[in-house]
Amino acid sequence: MKADTDTSARRPNQRPELAAIDDETMRGVLRKMHLIRKFEEAAEASYMRGLIHGTMHLSIGQEASAVGATLALMDEDYILSTHRGHGHCIAKGAEPARMFAEFFGKENGYCRGRGGSMHIADVDGGNLGANGIVGGGLPIAVGVGMSIKAQKLDRVAVVFFGDGASNEGAFHEALNMASIWKLPILFVCENNKYGMSMDIGRAMAVPNVADRAVAYAMPGVVVDGNDLPAVAAVAREAAERARAGGGPTLIECKTYRLRGHSKSDRNLYRTKEEIEEWRSRCPIRRLEAELTAHERFTPEALMTIEEAAQAEIDAALDFAKASPDPDPKDLTRDVYAD
């Protein structure tokens, strides 16, 4: 339901994808995109200052695919994420404070400090986990789909993966099974152009990951992954089809990671010019510019949202720093369930 003050419907020149997202929802979208960006900027800064023990994979520049693909999800729907998963986690509703605590390896992190950046999960919140293995989540999503169907639940699963994962056998096996059993799954490929350093042009014989959907008789859609309303529209349609028993969809979000693969990356495989060109397509600034152009939000209102997100991240970081480390006497806890 749109509030009386909602401006989304009163701007006739908007494209339908933008008009479909009302102001209140859009505030939530912007908040989450900023939270993701600022979470990762703070993560990076913490790493640079030597506060982080392990590694991390930043998704700066890819915020629109994470938030857009999950916009149509309900709390009880599922996501499965990747090693570059902070964005997916926040998009599904995770608390940045507990994420930071996990990132810092602390006892009150989402995984009690046992998983770290690459394994953040919030099972109660429907996030079945980031995954350190490229393509690891794809077959798991099939089982989640089987589970939804067997229990006759009105749920869908979104499984994120990268362009690199689409070259794994797991991709083929998972999409085939999801299609023959018409499982309610959105296969969301975040094609950020590189599998670590290898350009997709050298790693794939087809120009688009979505082209591979033909082999599984499921819709394959290419969308500008830095265009939030476009991603949200495609994902909404796919989720509706999945809920109606129409089976899975392969969605390819063309995007770009502005940071390196991980902390060891020296960007030897791409040019500064290319990175700068993609920086100008920042999904957050682009969305904000469109919203102000259509007078749906003032620059001041947008600034307020961004500042609130920054404050939330600052507080989350403080929470993490103040959190206790796990006790070594609990080392072998939770290897098995009783």
Binding site: L128, G136, G143, S147, E173
Partner: peptide, 11 residues
């Protein structure tokens, strides 16, 4: 993998 996914979601 499907067994894992089904197991963690109640089957």
């Amino acid at each position: 993998g499907a067994a894992v996914g089904a197991a963690i979601t109640g089957m």
